[in-house]
Nucleic acid binder design. Structure first.
Lengths: 335, 335
DNA sequence: ATTGTTTTCGCAACCGTTTGCTATTGAAAA
DNA sequence: TTTTCAATAGCAAACGGTTGCGAAAACAAT
């Protein structure tokens, strides 16, 4: 079956397509009587506008591009959900592109966004992205772009992410005030800005509380587990900080395997999206790096830029508020 | 900055837009010399075709709609990833719409897909969806639609999901051959087709092995935990089957709380996407309901329909192959 | 009766590409 | 020299809407 078009409706009623177009959007130029007749027919024939045509004419796609490294990692599903929620509520549509931690794919994805005329872009950079030149085309067109979560410093785009240094300080603070003096920090890939910032927070807080510390860098869960095991044996910590879900997932088994009890023998605090710490036994105190809220915040910020036609590149840094979820004995996720 | 168009290029070179259009796609009608000149200019000026126009003209969007209840639930992130992978590899784009387990939102999302001229649709129905009438518009246009994972029986659309009954039988079989005789099955919302099928499998296998069984229905993790706790006290099982991640997440804490050891006092087997069973302590044997593969399979099926212009509504049922991951003592996810 | 003002609707251009057909060449074949 | 035929490039319609402007008719004011 062919799609019903404005022309079809116009032909059937012997009026001009422009009249139909206006009638359907309640333009006052069209008489009430005719207007109703047109709307009735449109409904009867189940007319739906062809958005490709609308978009072309209006030069607006109502499409938002979302480029992420990997839809499956701990954090991103919630981010997608948060973004999608806000986007849909504002009559935008979400084009989801995965880069698979691959810079070339990311560039390709940006190109796809450009060609499809996205009105705005939300992008979480891959770990390999060290320049933002591939965003230039979109920038030239004044299309708002927001860097989400994984960002790089040298740029003038808006960014939405948590204050990594502060978040880490809060975690270490908690360890310190609950009595820990010897703390191991488990960190991810040391080339990432995120890792560096959290490392900074770790160092600052450690100095403040005069803690004895040790640092473990690990790429991925398994490496974290192996390296931490050795480190624990040598260093004999009474507290461990995991900077991410990936490292936490390695840290907890390592601790258990050595026969240490959490938190009696060794406290654990992590920065996490929240699922893992509450599923582990025992549950772990964590600083909530809330993907859902981060997604919502980023999307809202983008939408407001779009609607208020603000300067698309205001170079703002928006920090997601964080809070510590003390979780040593309860399972609030079961509530 | 304005976007460079074919017209711009044509104007600059004093040729017709059709010439430029053909040159850029290596049409033999255009002389090699001119063709190269055009391509060079296009590259220099960083020309990108406007897909909205292309789509309108070609009446093809290369867009695939994905409608899911909730992007954050255990299973769906992997499904999204699998689909996205295959879709991108075939030069399609993914429009992701969430229904939030809400039928009206689902209908709205279908409408959005229709208006945006998706070339195909992948849809995981909400729990409230009991009819497929809202798909009629797309069906009338001969747009291929594939039901993924959550399906309903009464329809003639293609479906991709696991053989729930068989999967359950495999799980119960494993419990039986490892010596369990008294088994509790923990099931989700009893109105869902998926629950019914898994219940059927449970019953069939229980009969086959002459097991004594008990059934618990629970909506959500917390309810599963509460109901199962009581049930365990009364029934004294030596094996527990959880039909989903949601129920499993309730079952394991319930068992532990009663002081029972897994698997010494009570074996546990679940149908699961795989993350949770491998994160729990101890790790749980599970039948892998693989979202990643399911997504890939569904997407591939859709793409092949699109490319081969097959009958869009062949009413096929495609079952994802399943396999049991015996996981009582190892943590393969750390490998 | 004339002029002015609304109301109601049509005309046609436009958004950026694609594509069937035609027109203009120059060279090979007759 | 005339005919034939490629090779090359242009013309214009089409995709399905939107929108500025003008036209006709109806009504009010003078």
């Amino acid at each position: 079956m062919k799609r019903i078009t404005l022309k079809d409706l116009a032909g059937l009623l012997g009026v001009n397509t422009s009249t139909v177009s206006r009638a359907l959007k309640d333009h006052p130029d069209i008489g009430v009587e005719l207007r109703e007749k047109i709307k009735r027919l449109a409904k009867d024939l189940n007319y739906h506008p062809n958005m490709m045509a609308v978009q072309l004419r209006k030069q607006k796609s109502n499409l938002i591009g979302l480029i992420i490294p990997d839809a499956i990692m701990f954090f991103f599903p919630s981010v997608i959900k948060g973004i999608s929620e806000v986007i849909q509520k504002n009559n935008y549509k979400l084009l989801v592109l995965q880069s698979g931690e691959n810079l070339e794919q990311e560039e390709e994805n940006v190109r796809i966004c450009f060609e499809n005329g996205v009105d705005g872009l939300l992008i979480t950079l891959t770990n390999q992205t060290h320049s933002l030149n591939h965003l230039n085309d979109l920038r030239d067109m004044n299309i708002p772009i927001i860097l989400v979560d994984k960002i790089i410093e040298e740029n003038s785009y808006d960014k939405v992410f948590i204050d990594d240094q502060n978040a880490t300080e809060i975690c270490i603070n908690h360890l310190a005030v609950t009595g820990c003096r010897r703390i191991i920090g488990v960190f991810g890939n040391e080339n990432l800005r995120m890792t560096k910032s959290r490392l900074d927070g770790f160092t600052v807080a450690a100095q403040k509380y005069q803690l004895t510390t040790e640092i473990v860098h690990a790429d991925g869960t398994f490496e974290a587990m192996k390296k931490l095991s050795q480190s624990i044996l040598k260093f004999k910590p009474d507290g461990i900080f995991a900077m991410s879900d990936e490292t936490l997932a390695g840290a907890v088994p390592a601790i258990k395997k050595l026969g240490l009890k959490i938190p009696q023998d060794c406290s654990v605090v992590a920065i996490s999206d929240g699922f893992l710490p509450q599923i582990l036994d025992p549950t772990i105190t964590f600083l909530h790096h809330d993907g859902l809220e981060l997604g919502r915040l980023a999307a809202k910020h983008l939408i407001s830029k779009l609607q208020n036609k603000e300067n698309p590149y205001s170079n703002q840094t928006i920090h997601l508020p964080v809070n510590l979820e003390i979780n040593d004995s309860t399972k609030p996720w079961l509530k």
